[in-house]
Simulated assay, not measured.
Amino acid sequence: MNFRKENKMVYIVTAFAVILFFGCESNFKEIQKINYSEFTPGGDADNVNLKYTDSGLIKMILLSPKMLDYSNVNFPFTEFPKGIDLTLYDAQAKTTRITAKYAVSYGLTNIIDLQGKVKIVSQQGQTLETEQLFYDQKNEWFFTEKKFKFTDLKGTSNGQGIDFSKDFKIINSQKITGELESEE
């Protein structure tokens, strides 16, 4: 008889543990839902053709097949998942054209992250190609730590790590190979 009481006790404890376990699981799922927040864009646009002007002058033209606006999050950004074609204009209406397969523009920092076959071509014929490039809109400055290929009238060079002004007048490169004519 003692054996039956112990078996009954084991069954009761096991049943109680199973009920407790399944009872907590549903509460755990509810708690997970409390911490879950949807990450959806506040705006979604197709075939974007955006012109930015300042004092009546065109400063930038942005073309993109898709734009997602996440201005509704704590660190707002705009994503271009299908790439961009961006033309920048200086005070003399000289252009710098930038293309990339993907881009993200961060509103608080004014930094644009360009990725995937990034290519910049200036009106003077200078070309830079890389896989990732950042653009500081406030200072009109480009920079990357990735490998790059730079071509101008003086020749072609390859390297890793470069930063330069929007008009290519100031160029600071790190590891560079190739032949270039120098004015010095």
Rank of each mutant, 00 (worst) to 15 (best):
F148H: 09
I19P: 09
T87F: 01
Q115G: 00
L68H: 06
C24Q: 12
Y36I: 11
R4C: 13
N27L: 15
F28H: 12
Q123G: 06
Y102T: 08
G23D: 08
K94L: 08
S122I: 04
K169N: 14
Q126M: 08
G23L: 10
I176F: 07
A15T: 13
F143Y: 15
K8R: 11
V121F: 00
T95S: 03
L153S: 15
K33S: 15
L128Q: 10
Q123F: 02
E183F: 14
S105E: 10
L88F: 12
I61T: 04
K51P: 03
Y135P: 02
K147C: 05
D163A: 12
P81Y: 05
S157M: 15
F3L: 13
V73N: 00
Y135G: 04
S71H: 03
E38D: 06
Y11D: 11
K33M: 14
E183A: 09
I31Y: 12
K166V: 15
T127L: 02
T156C: 00
Y106S: 01
N72F: 06
N7R: 10
Q123M: 05
I31A: 12
T127C: 09
K146W: 03
E129M: 10
V13F: 13
P65Q: 05
N35Y: 11
K33P: 08
P81S: 00
L88W: 03
E129P: 01
P76T: 00
E38S: 12
G159V: 05
G116E: 09
Q132L: 05
Q124T: 14
E179R: 09
K66F: 12
K59W: 03
S26V: 14
K59L: 06
F150N: 04
G178R: 10
N74K: 12
P81R: 07
K149Y: 02
M67G: 06
E38V: 14
I162N: 07
L114F: 15
Y106M: 09
V121S: 02
L128Y: 04
S182D: 11
Y70G: 09
D44N: 10
T14W: 07
V104F: 01
